[in-house]
Amino acid sequence: MPDASSPSRIRSSRLSVRASPDELARWSQSARFLGHATTADWVRTLLQDAVLSHHRGGTVSRELRQLRGELGRIGNNLNQLAHAVHLGDAVACGDTLQDIDRLKDRTDHLLRDLRPVRVQRARSVSVPLMH
């Protein structure tokens, strides 16, 4: 690992993100709660974790859009089945019920992935100032 004075450790580049004052306050509070000295330190950790895990952004929103589309199709199927029942037709709804169970499982899996990992909060240490 390079020492702090090596050229690869010097932070001479800047990455900027625009945020509302509320967003910035929430991010800062979250960073402190998770034991980071600064929001920048927390963001560096998040980015490094994403690089190491090969996690690409947008996965959750894409998955939610897919789930929403499937829910719409299942709802359409349920409406067609209900209409057939009201007409007195015999209906087989096994496939639709299996689709609902499969979608429920996918949703549960996504929600488990979204749950934040509990990080033990770092204890603050008082260090006397030298005068």
Rank of each mutant, 00 (worst) to 15 (best):
R14Q: 10
S28C: 02
S30N: 10
W42N: 04
D101C: 05
L111I: 12
L34P: 08
D22W: 05
A31N: 03
R68F: 14
L67T: 11
S12V: 15
R118T: 12
N79E: 08
E63F: 07
G35N: 04
Q66H: 07
S13C: 07
A40T: 13
R32H: 13
S61W: 07
L114H: 03
L71R: 01
V51I: 13
L24S: 11
R118A: 10
S30L: 15
H83G: 10
S13M: 11
C93W: 15
T96M: 14
R68K: 03
R73Y: 14
Q29F: 13
S28L: 01
R44T: 03
S20I: 07
D49G: 03
W27H: 05
V91S: 08
A92W: 15
D108F: 11
R14D: 02
G75K: 00
D22P: 00
L67S: 05
L97E: 15
D101A: 12
H36G: 02
H109K: 01
R32W: 07
I10T: 13
D105V: 13
S12T: 15
R32L: 02
H55G: 02
S20N: 04
R62D: 08
R65Y: 00
L64V: 12
L87H: 15
Q66D: 06
L15I: 14
Q80A: 07
T39R: 07
C93M: 14
